[in-house]
Amino acid sequence: MIHIDNLSKSFTLHNQGSTVIPVMAGAALEVAGGECVGLTGRSGAGKSTLMRMVYGNYLAAGGRLLVGGLDVARAQPREIIRLRRDTLGYVSQFLRVVPRVPTLDVVAEPLLALGTPVEQARQRAADLLARLNIPERLWSLSPTTFSGGEQQRVNIARGFAHAYPALLLDEPTASLDAANREVVLGLIEEAKARGAAILGIFHDEGARARVCDRLVDVTGFTPQVAA
């Protein structure tokens, strides 16, 4: 489902003397349907960068990055928009939504974008929010006012609202209590069971051990800067 081959990335800081910072070279990995692959490596090694490249958020400098047959490294914006709508979900660590929109609608939005009838989308959103222990009295409020842990769970609910064939998870269990951690791990296992390809970053070693089928250390993708 996800196929990465010889991927490279560098940042050029035009306003700081055009410094070029190579951050990745020769990255390669594969995630099949129903499989969960965890990225490891020390902080700053490029785990999040790689995830963002898969999502099309960062531009690749070279190589191939196939998601569901589309080469994200070369795709047109509208192809990536379609990919994100139909195929590729992303649970980031940050919740970025229009203020004042009720939580229920924030979670239902990915389904509405696919044309799901409003009632059906809201029902699915309600089920997920209930499962993630977000009190019902908060559903009509904007998540922008929620605590970090609550925002994280809203983000997860949003990411799991549609049964994406491919999922990117960036620290999905961080800042969660044991009960909610268990719910999230359950969601991930269900996604695997229905055949989703999952690429994730898990600092939580217990979670990593439980859901990941393989680990890939991104340190190997760090370019060797001539000393």
């Binding site: 963002r52 099309g56 958020n57 960062y58 990536i80 928009i81």
Partner: peptide, 11 residues
């Protein structure tokens, strides 16, 4: 380009 790409990884 894609809005978030241009804003997060401006070229």
């Amino acid at each position: 380009g894609l809005t978030d790409q241009v804003l997060d990884d401006p070229q």
